[in-house]
Amino acid sequence: MGFVAAAVAILAALLVLLVALVAYTAAVARRAQARVPPLGRFVDVDGARLHYVDRGRGPVVVLLHGLGGNLRNFHALIERLAPDHRVVALDRPGCGYSTTASAAQPDLFEQARIVAAFLRALDLRQPLVVGHSMGGALALALALDFPDHVGSLVLLSPASHEVREPPAPFKGLDVPSPVLRRVLAWTLATPLGQLAHERMLAAVFAPDAVTPGFDVEGGGALGARPGNFIAASADMVALPAALAAMAPRYPSLSLPVQVVFGRDDPICPLALHGLPLAAAVPGAALHLLDGGHMIPLTQADAVAALLRKAAAERREAATVRTPVANVVPA
């Protein structure tokens, strides 16, 4: 009886711990959503409900955020561009406040299909598409699979080529099993993430300092929600195979492409992503800035200037009409 009683006591203690972890995770998620509520509108497209902001008037710029992020990651660029551009930023499917009908996180190509449907729903015709980090990979997938939907690309610190080893700050997301991923999301991921939050941000922003107010203005607090862990883990696990499939297709891109990197980016190193991408895409321009991976925030003025120029070039190209040649009989 002693052994049975001990076993029952251990199981009861584990159950209490499990309930406590789930309750803590739910409470943290509620606090995060109270601090960082939705900013914009929602639209239902192709099996997804997408949260987006649509600001300003003028040349259209569409912003796609990176792994584990949300549209608030672009707040500094939105502020700088919206006075004379129409800036549309969306939470990628499964991220931020965007949801999908399926419980499974859509892969990169499925996300590209959803974003293409989003562009059609808002009647955004061949805009300048800007992608940061994994959002850069999504922008590339969109241009490859839906070339008539994209006018030009600006890729900020994009993930573009297969790398099997995840960046050090994201190794905790390397959970291939969907079941284990969900268990961790509702038990250990949030409390451990809270403990490592400041260290994680410092590693992602390195060598730059974390921008003030990132948790609220930049949406960083939403990373504590279990759904964010599930989506980010699924995205990261599936990304290498998607990039391996895409890389041989980069030479087929015929639209204007600009690649922008921080010289000291530790998350998507220039040598592994920026240089081979710029070499593979015909006519691609490579711009190097001081700093690391989070250049949409740490180098917002320089990035906004590049986007402003790219949008102007896109608008000028869209207005060009090929003249009809005068044919003189021989």
Rank of each mutant, 00 (worst) to 15 (best):
G2D: 13
F3L: 15
A7P: 10
A7C: 14
A7T: 12
V8A: 15
V8Y: 10
V8H: 11
A9E: 11
A9M: 11
I10V: 15
I10P: 13
L11N: 04
A13D: 09
A13E: 08
A13C: 12
V16Q: 03
V19F: 13
L21E: 15
A23Q: 10
A23V: 05
Y24G: 07
A26K: 11
A26E: 15
A27H: 15
V28H: 10
V28C: 09
A29E: 14
Q33S: 12
R35F: 00
P37A: 03
P38V: 06
L39Q: 14
L39R: 15
G40I: 05
F42V: 07
F42C: 05
V43S: 13
D44F: 00
V45G: 12
D46W: 03
G47V: 05
R49K: 14
L50S: 08
L50Q: 09
L50V: 08
H51Y: 09
Y52N: 11
V53I: 15
V53W: 09
V53M: 13
G56W: 05
R57S: 14
G58Y: 06
G58V: 04
V60H: 07
V61E: 07
V62T: 04
L63V: 04
L63D: 05
H65N: 10
H65P: 07
L67W: 03
G68I: 00
G68V: 01
L71Y: 04
L71A: 05
R72S: 01
R72P: 01
R72I: 01
R72C: 02
F74A: 01
A76C: 03
L77Y: 02
E79S: 09
R80H: 01
L81P: 04
L81D: 04
L81T: 02
A82D: 05
A82G: 02
A82F: 01
H85G: 06
R86C: 06
A89Q: 08
A89V: 04
A89E: 07
L90P: 06
D91W: 04
P93T: 04
P93V: 02
Y97P: 07
S98E: 04
A101Y: 03
A101F: 02
A103F: 00
A103W: 07
F109R: 09
Q111A: 02
I114F: 00
I114P: 03
A116I: 00
A116T: 00
